[in-house]
Design a protein around this nucleic acid. Sequence first.
DNA 1: CCGCAATAGAGGACTTATCATATATGTGCA
DNA 2: TGCACATATATGATAAGTCCTCTATTGCGG
Lengths: 186, 186
Amino acid sequence: MSLSHAVMGLLRVRPMTGYDLKTAWFDRSMRYFWPADQAQIYRTLDALAARGWATSHVEPGVDRPNRKVFTLTGDGEAELLRWLAESQPLPTVRDPLLVQLFCGDALEDADLVALLRDQRSRHEERRHHYEAVGEIIERAPATDGQRRLWHLTLANGRGREDAYLAWLDEAIAILTGEDAAAPGEP
Amino acid sequence: MSLSHAVMGLLRVRPMTGYDLKTAWFDRSMRYFWPADQAQIYRTLDALAARGWATSHVEPGVDRPNRKVFTLTGDGEAELLRWLAESQPLPTVRDPLLVQLFCGDALEDADLVALLRDQRSRHEERRHHYEAVGEIIERAPATDGQRRLWHLTLANGRGREDAYLAWLDEAIAILTGEDAAAPGEP
DNA sequence: CCGCAATAGAGGACTTATCATATATGTGCA
DNA sequence: TGCACATATATGATAAGTCCTCTATTGCGG
């Protein structure tokens, strides 16, 4: 359960509610390298509390619903540090487009190109989004040490999207038959 | 359950057993973009049969255990084609190293660098592996159409690994403080 | 002869992840 | 008034994925 450790990593900076974790972290940065939905976040917090890695207290909401704030315990921090220093498995990739391509013999090239173009526009959107994130990090209330690491994480995403887009363009070119024609006078 | 569709895509080429699917496909190519373990493959085959998307018959083993061969049905092929032409979600990435980096403020730089170097060697191994796959595809008994698409899928993996390695090197350089010193005589 | 690897399949137990819905409160807007 | 939206938490149901063990058979090497 590595979501536990991601959550603990965030709680370590400051105590937070499930809602905070979701809206401020998982909906923004975290989802690009460790997606998790609301239900999973809330249940993970409960699991952390059950294992003694976090405690919770309810803050009565001023003109708002009550907030259940989770705080990392000493045990939690120890476990976090242990995990953080431990070598982890390589990233897991699950890419339905590659399944489609791999089995795409059953389709016309034109259909494959349509799929590629569709993903291209969404990947491009994501890359545009990443372009804005650098400044968001700069304006974030955080230490320089944190900002430096966030920039590094962002750089990974940018590199990934750039590579993916380059590959998509290459694949589209090949499948539309734009590889034979050499540029220049015929 | 997109594993169903990946499996159907493979069954469409030729009827196969769970063992074939695992050893010939998931352990080799497929795992790089849609990992699945043995238990999941066997249960997915049962699910396909239950939904009428595949049928199975037992071939008595000649000097071997019996083989339960699964064949795609007409319904299965129709469903496969429907899915293949349908726009799919963007790839999901789950990268524990990025979680570690993102929360890595709790660690010394030297510890982070150790993590990065560790992953670097494994990513490099994977890239080396990819380098050999091109020729494997060429020698595979398949149509040119299939080979072309497999090469494209492989190119995606190569691009991904190259980008990841480049990022790792950059990150290691930054975290070891090798960004300030300009090369040249001191 | 013993153990090990390869071939082949099955299933229990569990964790992780997703989808949908329910609950409660206050604000702003049309 | 009526409804959408933001803030907050919770849970039921299901799907997907992982880990481990077990059953069989044959052939190979020591």
